[in-house]
Design a protein around this nucleic acid. Structure first.
Lengths: 191, 191
DNA sequence: ATCACCATGTAAGCTGTTACATGATTAA
DNA sequence: TTAATCATGTAACAGCTTACATGGTGAT
């Protein structure tokens, strides 16, 4: 039996860490602190997940570390993203496909500064496209339904229609937000 | 060493399955089909997770099964929720606390028909409260920031502010949707 | 013939959480 | 003296996905 080769060596958390390290070198502890309350409000991780991920990233040549003076009982390691790590995040950001999950979408927007304007706008367009299609799908499902007023809150269908309504609210909000972000990038390009 | 006693015997997926079975008896295959495309758009599970969960629910007295005629190579089992299972979901729904995660919030709204109007409204009020607080938190974080126009899209802070903005859009949409749902329940009470 | 649907189960692996483990320095 | 902060690591477990395994019936 052959071990399936992983398409990407790096987990999504790995890309999140690379993105944070692209700002400035940091220790695992620093990253754990940043990710304690969700970073950019949406992402969260514990040190028990971060330390092994950093080890893995280093094995894959995405980061290097240097031992610095610190207060812990073990050597304090300061990590720094490598050239290969930087280009791996950029490649990942440009590969945005319609299947990405929601947490990942926010991570991609969070890391949009890593891309040149052209690629940033392309990424956001792909994300927008995905949400437009999902919205259309939901609206299609709503058309085949009875009017809201006819479903009693004691009927199992009540929750079905209610959560579908939420889907519509969500997708509309998301599209409006993406559009705003796109405009901000277009206007801020020269700054 | 003592095994920590579980506060709740039932996983969140277990409650989702109990909620679906409260509509009508079903086989694991039926449930897997319902959960293939996300139920009520937001929840998704595979058969490999569903079958063991049903076994567990049965061991806990939440469901029973009966072997019926079917086309599979193994006996086809039709599951049915027990009295104890029904009351367990209701108890779970009423226990809504501010810490519940988002997927769970939608599941609770999806299953709101299982509660009498009074309890349903109380649950939605608790959920609303949670989102109001989160919104206020995000707005507070935005106050301390530079104006949108001053952050370049090539600055790491760009994504930080953008995702925080999304948080605000999300929470506002959620609150508006919850309010609409509350009104629907109040108006539909007599039907 | 080949595919899709019915129908249930197990195994391996990844992601993420909680808990265990160690130990110095500084503030209340 | 008690707690918080710095600092890194491992172990056990829950949740979820992908893949393996079996086998009949009906449609193209």
């Amino acid at each position: 039996m052959v071990t399936t080769p992983r398409l990407s060596l790096v987990s999504t958390l790995g890309f999140a860490l690379l993105g944070l390290l692209a700002r400035q070198p940091a220790t695992g502890y620093d990253l754990a602190r940043d990710l304690r309350r969700p970073v950019g409000y949406f992402w969260h991780a514990r040190h028990s997940q971060i330390y092994p991920t950093l080890t893995q990233l280093e094995a894959d040549g995405m980061v290097t570390h240097e031992v610095i003076a610190g207060a812990g009982p073990r050597p304090t390691k300061q990590y720094r993203v490598t050239r290969s790590g930087r280009s791996a995040v950029r490649r990942w950001l440009r590969e945005t496909t319609p299947e990405v999950d929601d947490r990942e979408i926010l991570l991609r927007v969070y890391l949009v500064w890593l891309l040149p304007t052209r690629d940033a706008l392309a990424m956001l367009a792909a994300i927008r496209e995905h949400h437009v299609r999902t919205l259309e799908h939901f609206l299609g499902l709503l058309v085949g339904r009875d009017d809201a007023a006819t479903v009693s809150p004691l009927d199992p269908l009540f929750g079905e229609r209610a959560t579908l309504d939420w889907g519509v609210v969500f997708e509309r909000g998301r599209i409006a937000w993406i559009d705003r972000t796109i405009h901000e990038i277009q206007n801020g390009e020269s700054r």
